[in-house]
Nucleic acid binder design. Structure first.
Lengths: 212, 212
DNA sequence: CCCGGCCTCGGCCGAAAGTTCGATGCGGTC
DNA sequence: GACCGCATCGAACTTTCGGCCGAGGCCGGG
């Protein structure tokens, strides 16, 4: 039986969630909280398998509450799913860094809520598809630019080595070219990218996902 | 009505998926393929709203097939969900970079399959919770190390600026300290981290997730 | 109270990096 | 053939970095 704690400042939302979850044969809502402080307190006392936290709550918001019961420094972290109306990216990152193992939008269907709870209880994590697609864009977008790079293949070789912290001398030795050539290439790379020094060049390579 | 194409080399799997999806009032399986080449051909001809591709298929695997119908260079990319038994990380990355907008494990329930299809059709993306949790670990793991850094707060300020490509002179001006102090700090940082130059220092900062 | 870590600053020097001039050859395009 | 981008190399120069010496002030623990 998966024990669930619900925290939301709106009575209707809590009741709705509770009805959905209690209708599942293997789930049971063991507590409800209407603000963040109460949520943290109940979470610590009841130690549910899964917590559903809204973000906007009186006294203590859901993100802060998550950090308090699931954060990196917490001894016995609980499984927390953030359930909210607003899908601002900052909320998502803040929640996930704070230890949340799920992020659901309220306009997701009941099926997703149930699956998210089940996933959380199993040690997995679920994120609303509308948010996932944006996360994936960040993962893949930099890669797409690789095809339309403004710099040459050869220059790319140099940039990769720069990003790994190699000196010009080492690059020259590794690629079997002269120190002059290395400087020439990196000079033109910096001109094309608008970089002022090799660290900015390296930073560009890192952002573009050229090294890993 | 969401038109779905199913590609899997096992007849049983295709039939199972088709039964699940056809039971939904707003979904319709419009085609089935038993290998990758057929999958690509059917996808291009039928132009379904969502494609379900297995990875292990004869002639052409699902990852390559995905790239062919949803890759970065494809004109009218289709929405592809990878459905597979194996959750190797390399598969996941390869699929998502190849243009997939979903990655499901076959041991996920029917509910997840349905939700994934619905999400894909809506332009969103869903990933199996078992995989998502690992993706999140990669997102948050580097952050945890921040607490156990071997370097000072002040040194951290310097390192962040180094990672952004600032010169020592600029750092000195921005932090209102002298050039000598900047060099002293960065020197001790390099000693502690075992870096040989500022690019390696910056690389360490990037890997540790200190900059974004 | 002394020691050690941290933050601050200065000077000096050699090495590395970046800039600015060249130059050659090679492979495409018009 | 003329032109252009690319890769290669060289020399000289300025700027920046990094290493190595020193120093003082501050603060907290033994």
């Amino acid at each position: 039986m998966i024990k669930v704690l619900i925290a939301d400042d709106q009575q209707m939302v809590r009741t709705g969630f509770a009805m959905i979850l209690n209708a599942q044969p293997d789930m049971e809502v063991v507590g409800e909280a209407s603000d963040g402080v109460e949520a943290v307190e109940l979470a610590r006392r009841l130690r549910p398998d899964v917590c559903l936290f809204d973000i906007r709550m009186p006294r203590l918001d859901g993100l802060e509450a998550t950090r308090l019961v699931a954060g990196p420094d917490v001894a016995g972290p609980l499984r927390v799913i953030i359930v909210t109306t607003f899908d601002h990216d900052e909320y998502v990152y803040s929640a996930l860094r704070g230890g949340a193992c799920g992020f659901l939008l309220k306009d997701s269907g009941p099926a997703l809520l149930i699956e998210a709870v089940r996933a959380a209880a199993a040690g997995d994590a679920m994120i609303s598809p509308a948010i996932t697609v944006r996360l994936l864009e960040q993962l893949t977008a930099p890669r797409k630019r690789v095809a339309e790079l403004p710099i040459t293949d050869r220059e790319l070789d140099l940039v990769r080595l720069v990003a790994r912290g190699r000196t010009n001398h080492e690059i020259a030795a590794q690629l079997h070219i002269s120190l002059s050539t290395v400087k020439t290439h990196l000079g033109s790379v910096q001109r094309k990218l608008g970089c002022r020094n090799r660290v900015e060049t390296a930073a560009w390579a890192w952002e573009s996902g050229l090294v890993d």
